[in-house]
Design a protein around this nucleic acid. Structure first.
Lengths: 238, 238
DNA sequence: CGGCCCGTTGAGAGGATTCAAGAGTCGTGG
DNA sequence: CCACGACTCTTGAATCCTCTCAACGGGCCG
């Protein structure tokens, strides 16, 4: 049991569809759970017994092969919805990237509650459609883009997703942001090896397209050229 | 305007959620449209003005780069739903692979109708969730699998999807099926070139894992070994 | 200071692509 | 029914890109 009134993602999660009465009802179905960095919330192949809202932290959604090759197929941040409603298997693992908190429901409870609350189901549908668009976009990246294009696309997407405070330091468009994870995970997102990611980043740095104050921070110096590379790979060095 | 009663996908499409009265109502919103093979129904980047149900034929869903590289991000068959409800842009193209028929709605009409019919919205949600699972599975394929693994995975998936009549000819597990498209499109699905697909198919044939009566038909001779290759790539010859 | 983790860099190998040519298939028309 | 052309698929050789393996560098913490 929980207190939705004070929930930090109250207005951004799918729960925003609910009025106070309904909130009390769903309150009774949920419990807040803390997950340490590196710990899994859901395992690939397991029965789908729970769903959840991310309250705090970050998660990766992964699918892997027996020999250890891993592909990150999604990232989850506060207010995102986790799990597979209306299905009996989880086709992927969900693992905390940082110490996190989630608001957990039993899947059967949740499924039933959703069916009784069309507005909630509508929110869920919208989110699912957005996620589907996002995932499909990454199919083009994984299937057809070169390493240089993948890294450039990734940096642009991250800079947009993290487009909040810290930006526009000096004159104007100098976007600075901190990657919430290391090179290996970037590689797992882009379907590359860690070495290739590293080489591509260095390349971009050498061409003054980005700056790397440290390993986690990235500053986009020339967004136009970066966009050029992302969409065609044509790096026109003087 | 249309006649849903006689619709061949009446019971398999999302319309199955509707009772006779509702069917009359949605009837008024739809019109049946014929599309010739190769013709596009929706263009990548266009405003999302229509959605539809596939009634007959087949479609590919594609995303591409300016230089012509193309990735197939989905396939649609009769009873499948097409288009992007509750969003203003189509992020991909939809093109007929064969002469086809679709039942088209204006997106705004459809959006509104769906919101008024929770059962329909529920069907749509379920479909979207299933599609999301499918697309995520292919992210692992595109990001991490080798050419051999991709082709093997593809053949297994197609054999399951087309697992109907014609099967089990002789003793037992000899699955025979016809690919509904040519090598180039297989390549566009798997994120490979046509030559690589061809070479991998030949390789499988040489190892007596599949037979290729002609270019469109495939017969799986040794499903176990094919599954082995699909998941690990370890091809144990002789 | 030294070990550990993570990221970078280098050299070499391997796999997929590219470019080019040849083989097979299909439909058309003589 | 066969011949022809167009198109698709296959095969080959060379190139290119990414991966693999290995060593090095740098920051962080004990």
């Amino acid at each position: 049991m929980n207190n939705c009134d004070q929930c930090v993602v109250r207005n951004k999660s799918i729960c925003a569809a609910l009025d106070p009465d309904e909130l009390v009802a769903i309150n009774r179905l949920s419990r807040k759970v803390s997950i340490k960095a590196g710990q899994a919330l859901i395992w690939e192949g397991d029965d789908s017994l729970i769903v959840a809202n991310v309250v705090e932290g970050a998660f990766k959604l992964t699918s892997s092969l027996e020999d250890g090759r891993e592909q990150i197929i999604g990232l989850l941040y506060p207010s995102d919805f986790v799990g597979r409603p209306f299905g009996d298997k989880n086709e992927y693992s969900v693992t905390a990237l940082a110490d996190s908190k989630v608001c957990v429901f039993s899947r059967s409870d949740f499924d039933q509650f959703v069916r009784e609350h069309p507005d909630l189901e509508h929110k869920l549908l919208r989110r699912t459609l957005i996620e589907l668009d996002r995932v499909r976009r990454s199919m083009l990246l994984l299937g057809r883009k070169t390493a240089a294009e993948r890294v450039a696309s990734f940096l642009l997407e991250m800079s947009e997703r993290l487009a909040d405070a810290s930006c526009s330091v000096v004159g104007g468009n100098l976007k600075l942001f901190a990657l919430p994870f290391g090179r290996q995970q970037v590689a797992d997102i882009l379907g590359l090896t860690i070495e290739t990611v590293s080489r591509q980043m260095t390349q971009l740095k050498k061409n003054d397209i980005i700056a790397l104050p440290d390993h986690r921070n990235v500053q986009i110096l020339d967004a136009d050229r970066l966009r050029n590379i992302a969409d065609a790979g044509a790096l026109s060095v003087h």
